[in-house]
């Protein structure tokens, strides 16, 4: 009964992983059949010495920071506030969660228009605040990544919001009441009682967010295709570009494996954290 799944698992996950490891040692090309010439460690040397590899990794980490922090903090705040209201909660849930079900393609189309030069809502909006020459949101290397991160926050905050709302259900009513009787105001209660009790949810939300952000591709590919001047190009796009645009499969495999190691590292840290939390309980 395990067999059908195991088969798919081997063919589409384990097999490709092994191939990635092997191809990293060859000058494999998309345009020629077979593995190509044996390259030894030259791909690894080239990748580790390639400024573009480090820059895309830097971009990826920068994007991860830019999205994870607001996505965790904002969703927590939203959930804390929304948790106080029973009526109307469906409206907040709809407003914040609905974007999450949209395809990345739709999100990109929306925000390319919002960020458009001269025509977009975003430039118009900052003009209300007295900025006469708003930046080109997606065309200025200093702003492009921030703009994409903001669009991503809009898109995915609902998922974390819902996780936090669920976490809040676990905070027993008595805790609230006890704290209130002790004379704690709403703000103190949230800060000293509720938030600490959400520790597990916060770990979960943060780690899921970091892993998801490390794999960013879609919205960047569609909105800026990595530009301007490579300022938004993430690691996954380097793999896509070298593997499929340029056809250098060997090199791209090496990058894949290194990115895999980074993501694996984050996952293992998560496991360690969960383990420790379990022991403490």
């Amino acid at each position: 009964m395990l067999l059908p799944f195991a088969l798919f698992y081997l063919v589409f996950l384990v097999g490709p992983l092994i191939y990635t490891v092997i191809a990293g040692f060859f000058d494999t090309s998309l345009l020629r059949s077979g593995l190509g010439d044996f390259a030894g460690l030259s791909n690894y040397k080239a990748v580790l010495g390639d400024a573009e590899f480090w820059r895309t990794l830097g971009n990826t980490l920068w994007f991860t920071v830019l999205t994870t922090v607001p996505l965790v903090v904002l969703s927590l705040v939203l959930a804390l506030l929304a948790d106080r209201f029973v009526r109307g909660r469906w409206f907040f849930r709809f407003a914040f969660f609905a974007p999450f079900v949209l395809p990345s393609a739709v999100v990109s189309l929306l925000f390319m228009f919002i960020y458009a030069d001269q025509l977009g809502l975003a430039q118009e909006a900052v003009k209300w605040f007295g900025v006469d020459t708003p930046p080109s949101w997606l065309g200025d290397p200093d702003w492009a990544m921030l703009s994409i991160a903001a669009a991503t926050v809009w898109w995915t905050v609902g998922f974390n919001f819902v996780l936090y709302l669920a976490g809040l259900q676990d905070v027993p009513r008595e805790v609230h009441e006890a704290a209130a009787i002790d004379g704690a105001g709403p703000w103190q209660r949230i800060r000293h009682v509720v938030v600490p009790m959400l520790g597990r949810t916060t770990t979960l939300v943060t780690v899921l967010q970091v892993i998801a952000s490390l794999k960013v591709f879609d919205q960047i590919y569609m909105m800026t295709s990595g530009g301007p001047d490579g300022s938004t190009r993430p690691s996954l796009q380097l793999i896509y570009d070298t593997g499929f645009v340029e056809g250098r499969v060997g090199y791209a495999s090496t990058v894949s494996l290194l990115l895999f190691v980074v993501i694996l590292f984050v996952s293992l840290v998560w496991f360690a954290l969960v383990r420790r939390a379990e022991k403490e309980n």
């Binding site: 499929f244 499969v249 895999f260």
Partner: peptide, 15 residues
């Protein structure tokens, strides 16, 4: 769970 599928796009494509 820890294998990010996107990282394997090249060999999957070739297969």
């Amino acid at each position: 769970i820890m294998i990010p599928g996107q990282v394997l796009m090249i060999p999957q494509f070739l297969a």
